[in-house]
Amino acid sequence: MIQRTDAIRFNGVGQTFATDSGPLTALESVDLSIERHQFVAVLGPSGCGKSTLLRLAAGLLSPTSGETLIHGVAVDGPHDDIGMVFQQATLLPWATVLDNVTFPAKHKNGRVFRVERERARQVIEAVGLKGFEAQLPAQLSGGMQQRVGIARALFLNPDILLMDEPFSALDALTRDAMGLELLKLWQASPKTVLFITHSIPEAVLLADRVIVMSARPGHVIADRVVPLDRPRDETSLRSPEVQELAAELRQLLMPTLIGGERS
């Protein structure tokens, strides 16, 4: 039987926060569905609710209106069908690379089994950190730390990866290299990826689909398919169709940015 349920689905999702200066509507009627194993990038001005969207998908927030479905099931609290990668790697500074990667097991169950440690070693090798298992985070570069962050998210082998500007703290060259490596990982072991970024080239290079969100209150204003075959590499961005898409996305984002300045 072919599974037709989407991996992630936002049905008219709205999110309003109570703040000291009154209610703040971060998201307003967001409708978005993401197929299983699709790579979707989200662009949008700062503060438009992109991170909020990820927290909703992770069940860390419950929406004020509408509902979030994961694999067809309404989310009603935190769940671990997801792996999360943050802007800062946020590793445990006292734990080795291996212990950081196995941390989800240790934290969830109180102990780490040998098979889990083996699995962690494989994931560490997959992200290109073989030989660094015993190092502490402070001994690694920013890019390597983020690899550990990705390995930690992949360790429990979730079907969905939620990535919140994972490479934006890295220098430009490392950033490009990491993006392509992420694609390799994703191709070797397909996952549904919701990838937030501020970079149009990054979104276009990595994703199957690019979503553009409006300034707050955030909602989807554009949803484009990236006309690029896979596998992709650093030359992929040269194709004229892609240049055209990038230009269009820039056009769509500009007004939201100016609107964003106002608030």
Binding site: R55, A58, G59, L60, P78, H79, D80, I82, M84, F86, Q88, T90, L92, W94, F103, P104, K106, H107, K108, G110
Partner: peptide
């Protein structure tokens, strides 16, 4: 403690005391 780690802890649905012993306390060292 970085809020991201608390979110990680919540998404793993770990017992609350482990958030103290495995994340907050060592971070406070």
């Amino acid at each position: 403690t970085p809020p991201e780690l608390i979110e990680l802890s919540r998404s793993l649905r770990a017992p609350a005391y482990r958030q103290i012993t495995q994340i907050r306390l060592p971070y406070a060292v």
